[in-house]
Design a protein around this nucleic acid. Structure first.
Lengths: 187, 187
DNA sequence: CTCGGTGAGCTAATGACGTTAGCTTTTGAG
DNA sequence: CTCAAAAGCTAACGTCATTAGCTCACCGAG
């Protein structure tokens, strides 16, 4: 009665993501992951160093998934179209996977495991702005502003912070317009 | 050896806030609060129904503290000056109490305990925009946009999400300028 | 001043969880 | 075919939150 399950770190993370989606961050427990993967709790330590490390792997997966989505979204687009597509993809991701996003590391560059994925995600945001010919710190500021808008709106929306959902599409459109107008105005 | 401490719910919440500031949200445990207040863990249940309820009280305190700060900040100001003061007060609060802000409820209107405080905080944001003569849904959208900017920036900054802290003041100024320009443009 | 009841504290116990130690058994490389 | 490493297991511990039930300090009524 051993070595029949053929567990891997990837499968453990898969189960963790399911649990996260279904029961939220507090439902992501080693006991629950063990139950789902059909294994005793301590056996998980053969594939993952600790609950904290598992959380790190989960965060990494989320970053990668976001990168994939956003890359697809802006493919073949540039300028305002690219920005709009990116912003909508961002909001859509958070709406589809609110629990995952709430667990996505905000500072991936400070974690060895997540640094590369974080840098790649930043690259995608940066790429969406390529058409504007921004240079040096201008590009840095523009990327930061973009992140502020997308993250700010999506995180408030996904935690129900806007009260009634009425007119949220319009609010988001206004934010995007504001951003684009500003970008045009200072080029 | 009883009734010597004269604990109250307020004192329990005080201790919880200290613990939160010092050790983060995960350090906010009933055992730690009990130790700090000089009481056995189960005794806390005389003042608080559960850990969850204690968290609710803590969140409420944070909302109230934010409301006080922001009210002071915009007192006697109007128009662009009021908006600038509010935005800077928001960022300053999060910078001073990052752990508290991370525990502030994003959806206070959905909690009986926090609804009134949440509404009051919204009123302050709304009041900062009074000078612009916005009506109906225009005011709603403008308030939402303001929140998106302040929360988006402050939450990313406080979790170290911007990488190097270089030029963050400039980024924030740009966001404020962008917001004000937009407000002017559509009035 | 006393006496009784309420309420604020206590100890003991339970169950969930993360984690460690030490074992057994399967598996696959040579 | 052998055997060591990999992957599973059980047992045990410490930390939590929470519940049950006890005790004693305090306050108000007489």
């Amino acid at each position: 009665m051993a070595v029949r399950i053929r567990l891997t770190t990837a499968k453990v993370v898969d189960a963790a993501l399911e649990l996260l989606d279904e029961h939220g961050a507090e439902g992501l427990t080693l006991a629950a992951v063990a139950a789902r993967t059909g294994v005793a709790t301590p056996s998980l330590y053969k594939h993952v160093a600790s609950l904290g490390e598992l959380r790190g792997h989960v965060g990494l997966r989320v970053l990668e998934q976001m990168t994939d989505r956003f890359t697809d979204a802006i493919l073949g687009l540039s300028g305002d179209e690219a920005v709009r597509a990116l912003m909508h993809a961002y909001r859509a991701y958070v709406a589809q996977y609110p629990k995952r996003y709430s667990v996505a590391p905000m500072d991936p560059l400070h974690d060895d495991l997540q640094r590369a994925a974080g840098a790649k995600l930043m690259e995608v945001l940066y790429a969406a702005l390529r058409g504007y010919g921004l240079e040096g710190s201008e590009a840095v500021h523009a990327t930061r502003r973009l992140r502020v808008l997308a993250h700010g709106f999506a995180s408030i929306e996904s935690s129900g912070g806007f009260g009634l959902p009425e007119g949220l599409d319009e609010t988001y459109d206004q934010l995007i317009r504001m951003y684009l107008d500003d970008l045009r105005g200072k080029s």
